[in-house]
């Protein structure tokens, strides 16, 4: 499981960096999205994948096993990171549209 996820993370980072280095602005936004998702997965994998663990917060009726509980922390971190990248992408799209409207350009090298 870890191996597959690590490879996926590697691929996502590669694709993200590749897109980020393009000149077209929409690709840069895609690159940011890929990098953000790669990082979220990295948080998930780095803190340990526990496939058959129990959720840590259960309703009081369920019987809790004290061992083998999933770590709730990475999920909180990832949720926060997702919300932040939501805001950032919204900003980037706005910037893209504004750039396009003012300059009519999409190519970064033409922006001089």
């Amino acid at each position: 499981m870890e191996l597959i996820l690590s490879i996926v993370i590697g691929v996502l980072y590669t694709v993200g960096v590749f897109f980020l280095l393009r000149r077209s602005m929409i690709r840069i936004i895609l690159g940011v999205l890929f990098l953000g998702n790669a990082t979220n997965l990295l948080i998930f994998v780095a803190s340990g994948v526990t496939p058959d663990a129990q959720p840590s917060f259960l309703s009081s009726s369920t019987e809790a096993a004290s061992s083998n509980m999933a770590d709730p922390m990475p999920q909180a971190l990832i949720l926060t990171a997702i919300v932040i990248s939501f805001g950032v992408v919204a900003y980037l799209l706005t910037l893209l549209r504004k750039t396009h409207e003012i300059t009519g350009e999409e190519d970064m090298d033409q922006l001089k």
Binding site: G36, L42, A46, M73, P74
Partner: peptide
């Protein structure tokens, strides 16, 4: 992203 990746590995 570097910062968060660092945080993830550190955690």
């Amino acid at each position: 992203f570097f910062f968060v990746a660092g945080i993830a590995v550190l955690y």
